[in-house]
């Protein structure tokens, strides 16, 4: 028996919306559960006190500082590389074997799982180069992790700048480099910033890479060569070893909400850029 196509369509639509609704419910559940159980424990004292007794008491201040150092280092290292790559790919070369290899590299790098990056950072930076479990080793490895994100978004942003801008510059007698630094990059800046923000978001949530490159010392790192426990690693240790559920929830809430806000801001920024030039 064949159903009337219109009935089939109604059934199909109902099923599709139910499944989509289910996906949305999962997302809402995650955000609500973490916020409700975590936020009440987030106090000024929690944010600005050092963790005591393995994280059972005290706050998470040192982990916030470690996270900031490592993320900042990763961004400082990856941004020039990523933006440089994007400029090269979009402005300086035609599509050919070189661009294909570079794009292939970026794509594959984006697919490398974080545990592999952790192994790599551990053997190269921690062991071979003798940097030990440190903010520096962690930052270097994270820089490699976020590089493909920065390349992809910067490339999109630079491509979105209308060709007319460049033509106008050349007709005024500006060199290619002047055109890029004075006109194209400023116009693409919101998009490049988006890439950097997404990279910050990705870095904040990373655990597997940092566990084996930055270590888990709960003190505030004094130099680049000290081990630093980031918020995500701290949360993992609290949760896995069942040290303190309230503190785990509170750390997760801060972590999740900051990442979501950063990603949301990044998304809004990119939308605005795309709207302006399309």
């Amino acid at each position: 028996m064949r159903l009337d196509p219109r009935i089939t369509q109604t059934l199909a639509k109902a099923l599709l919306w139910t499944l989509t609704g289910f996906t949305l419910l999962i997302l809402i559940f995650i955000i609500v559960d973490i916020s409700i159980k975590g936020l009440p424990h987030v106090t000024a004292a929690f944010l600005f006190q050092e963790p005591h007794d393995m994280g059972r008491a005290g706050g998470i201040f040192s982990t916030i500082v470690s996270t900031a150092y490592i993320t900042l280092l990763a961004i400082l290292l990856a941004s020039p590389l990523g933006v440089g790559t994007a400029i090269y790919l979009t402005e300086y070369t035609r599509e050919g074997w070189a661009t294909r290899i570079i794009r292939f590299g970026a794509e594959c790098l984006a697919g490398v799982p974080s545990i592999i990056l952790g192994l790599f950072g551990f053997v190269l930076f921690v062991m071979k180069l003798g940097l030990g479990w440190s903010v520096l080793s962690g930052g270097l490895t994270l820089a490699i992790m976020v590089l493909p994100i920065i390349i992809r978004t910067s490339e999109e942003a630079i491509k979105a700048v209308p060709q007319d801008y460049r033509t106008a510059c050349y007709s005024l007698g500006m060199s290619q480099w002047q055109t890029i630094t004075r006109i194209v990059l400023p116009a693409a800046l919101p998009g490049i910033t988006t890439g950097i923000m997404l990279s910050v978001g990705r870095s904040l949530g990373e655990t597997a890479v940092l566990l084996f490159t930055a270590g888990a010392a709960p003190r505030t790192p004094a130099t680049l060569f000290d081990s630093g426990r980031t918020m995500a690693v701290h949360f993992y240790i609290l949760a896995r070893e069942g040290i303190s559920m309230p503190n785990a929830y509170a750390t997760a809430a801060i972590l999740m909400i900051s990442i979501l806000l950063i990603n949301l801001a990044a998304y809004t920024l990119m939308q605005r850029l795309m709207k302006r030039y399309s």
Partner: peptide, 8 residues
């Protein structure tokens, strides 16, 4: 959903 860390 992609932004929520895997530890969470």
């Amino acid at each position: 959903l992609a932004g929520i860390p895997s530890v969470v």
